[in-house]
Computed example of a mutant assay.
Amino acid sequence: MEDDDTQDLSICLVKIGNARDKVAFATLFKWFAPKIIRFGIKTFNNEASAKELLQETMTKVWKKAHTYDETKGKASTWVYTVMRNVSFDMLRKIQSNKEDTISDDIWPMLDSDENNNEEAYPDHLMSRTMSDHVEQLPDNQQQVIKGVYFNELSQEQLAKQLDIPVGTVKSRLRLALAKLKQYIGEDS
């Protein structure tokens, strides 16, 4: 880059900062766009992210041009610093999204067969106690409690699964909850 080009870029940046000069911004954009795209493709390994880097960088240049001080450095250094910071933000965002995906992969999903099993809830404070209380219920009431609360089935779904009327599911559920309330105690 020649000194004239460096001076022209600084003048453009000052004009953008002071007067929101669109012609100066177009000049700056035309100069930096291919360089930022090239850097973005090298960094992110895809053109879409490179274009996003260009857009974010130049948006920040437009918004923050008033903070540029030509006595402290070249315009190109200032723009590349903005670009570098934007690319770090994008990389952090990408890394964060990868970590979200990884967390989905490492947490096991419980199958409905496992939901009937008290080991499926080892981390719950009351799970052991609650499972003991549920086990004291008659079988038909256990089925309803486990279906509605552990397997999160609607009463209609459970009635269909057990091949009984919805009213029977509701009655069994009401009786089971009353017994559990007695087992656990009024205060709990």
Rank of each mutant, 00 (worst) to 15 (best):
M58T: 08
A48N: 12
A26W: 03
G40S: 02
I36T: 03
A65M: 02
T57L: 03
W31M: 05
L28R: 02
K30E: 15
R20G: 14
E52M: 02
K42Y: 02
T27C: 10
K42L: 07
A48E: 15
A50G: 14
T67R: 09
T43K: 13
I41R: 10
K63Y: 10
I36W: 04
P34D: 01
A48S: 11
L53A: 15
K42T: 10
G17P: 05
Y68K: 03
F29G: 05
Q55H: 07
E47S: 10
Q55G: 11
A19M: 11
G17T: 10
A65S: 15
W31K: 11
A24K: 07
T57C: 09
N18V: 10
Q55K: 09
F25Y: 15
K64F: 07
K63E: 15
N45R: 12
G17A: 07
R20L: 11
E52A: 09
A19G: 11
T43N: 06
E56L: 11
R20S: 14
S49V: 00
F25C: 00
N46Y: 04
L28G: 06
L28N: 00
K63W: 01
T59Q: 08
L54A: 05
G17L: 08
I37D: 04
T67Y: 11
V23H: 07
K51Q: 14
K63S: 14
A50T: 01
K51S: 07
F39G: 02
T67D: 01
T27Y: 13
K35V: 04
I16V: 15
W62A: 14
A26T: 12
M58N: 02
N46H: 13
Y68P: 04
K64Y: 11
K30D: 15
I16K: 00
T59H: 02
T27S: 11
P34S: 05
Q55T: 12
S49C: 10
H66N: 14
D21R: 00
K35A: 07
Q55N: 09
R38W: 01
T67C: 02
T43S: 12
I16L: 13
F29L: 12
N46M: 00
K60A: 13
N18L: 12
A26V: 06
W62F: 14
V61N: 05
L54V: 07
T27V: 12
I36Y: 05
F29R: 06
Y68C: 01
A26E: 15
T57Q: 06
T27G: 01
I16G: 08
A19W: 04
I36V: 09
N18Q: 15
V23I: 13
K42E: 11
R38S: 12
H66G: 04
K22P: 06
F39N: 06
A48I: 06
E47I: 08
K60H: 13
K60M: 12
A24V: 11
K64Q: 14
F32H: 12
K30Y: 06
